[in-house]
């Protein structure tokens, strides 16, 4: 018996799955796998599920309620018993007036409830364009994403050991995507700006036009080897930041990473337009605060900061004392953390 067991070759699931992953990557790259196939399938399940189960879509939930508020009065009358079908048909005829009366009341109730929910949904929709963040994007451009170059070693190290494809959300023209791809990483980027992604794609960088949230929503859980978030995440409100971070974590496989490439809030406060400072729904977080959010998601966190040195810290005695004090105080204000990379491993 043991001999037979020993004769059986071990199934190396890990190796076979690696091969399958590579094959899928090839098929995706040459267009044999339609990019929206999985999104379409996942969406179909949401639509097929009752409200509150798999579906998170309010309008489709309302439509399901509207559909469910109308009852079919055609009662099944088939029966295995002799004469059973006849009895059932007679009963359904006798009770039809009663059922119609009840049905009319249920339908009216359902109809009113549906109308209320539609009105509520429309009201919520209207709040969208009034949010300060949306006003701001029309009058003042958001602070640019920090340069990835001070953190390139850490990013390359994380990317090289990632257990799957890496997504850079808000990749712009794909500078970081190219940097990591050149280092051997399997990476692509998305950005809401069609102009930027087109520029990237023209330079043969895998960049696509999409927002971070919409793109992550299309992906199945535990799909990616890593997610790098940068750009407008700095200007998101705290709940929006948390949603995006949670989503990125859900989409990342075990041992994969989530990275935040962000500006330090002190730099933002010094450089942002006063209007932005007043109206911004959110502001950049300190690296340690991101670390706290990462810890809540049970990510093992490492923080890397890029600092501006105080150029006046070591002025010699040849500079007059009063001038030296002034320059050093000025230097202290301008120096300190400039940007950070917070890396969390799942």
């Amino acid at each position: 018996m043991n001999k037979e067991k020993n004769d059986v070759d071990r199934i190396d699931s890990h190796r076979i799955m690696e091969e399958i992953h590579r094959e899928v990557q090839r098929r995706r790259a040459d267009g044999r796998i339609p990019p929206d196939l999985e999104h379409e399938i996942t969406k179909a399940f949401r639509e097929a599920s009752p409200p509150g189960t798999a579906s998170g879509d309010i309008p489709s939930s309302i439509e399901q309620l509207a559909e469910a508020s109308h009852f079919d009065l055609t009662v099944p009358t088939a029966s295995n018993l002799p004469g059973g079908s006849y009895v059932k048909r007679m009963e359904s005829k006798v009770l039809r007036w009663y059922m119609q009366h009840i049905n009319a009341q249920f339908s009216e109730f359902g109809s009113i409830l549906t109308q209320i929910l539609r009105a509520l949904d429309n009201s919520i929709e209207k709040f969208g364009p009034l949010s300060p963040a949306k006003i701001l994007t029309t009058i003042s451009p958001p602070m640019p994403a920090p340069s990835p170059f001070p953190f390139s070693d850490h990013l390359i190290k994380a990317a090289q050991t990632a257990p799957g494809r890496i997504l850079h959300a808000e990749c712009g023209t794909g500078t970081l995507v190219r940097l990591l791809a050149d280092a051997g990483a399997d990476i692509y980027g998305v950005d809401p700006s069609e102009t930027a992604t087109l520029e990237g794609a023209t330079a043969r960088i895998d960049t696509r036009s999409d927002t971070a949230l919409a793109h992550l929503d299309k992906l199945a859980d535990n799909t990616l080897g890593g997610v790098i978030l940068s750009g407008s995440i700095d200007s998101f409100s705290l709940p929006e930041k948390q949603v995006l971070l949670e989503m990125a974590t859900e989409k990342t496989r075990d041992k994969g990473f989530v990275g935040i490439l962000g500006n330090d809030p002190r730099v933002w406060e010094r450089s942002a337009d006063p209007l932005v400072l007043d109206l911004a729904a959110g502001k950049p977080l300190r690296a340690t605060t991101w670390g706290l959010l990462f810890a809540q998601l049970r990510l093992t966190t490492e923080i890397h900061e890029s600092e501006i040195d105080n150029p006046f810290a070591n002025l010699g005695d040849d500079v007059p004392l009063s001038l030296r004090d002034t320059l050093q105080r000025f230097g202290e204000q301008m120096s300190g953390p400039r940007s950070h990379l917070v890396l969390g491993t799942k």
């Binding site: 699931s13 890990h14 076979i16 799955m17 399958i20 098929r27 196939l37 199945a220």
Partner: peptide, 19 residues
């Protein structure tokens, strides 16, 4: 005694079936 999947990503499972 089986091919163990580390992901349920539909296209990956489909490719495992094909394999």
């Amino acid at each position: 005694a089986g091919l163990l999947l580390p992901t349920k990503q539909h296209v990956i499972v489909a490719s495992a079936l094909d394999r």
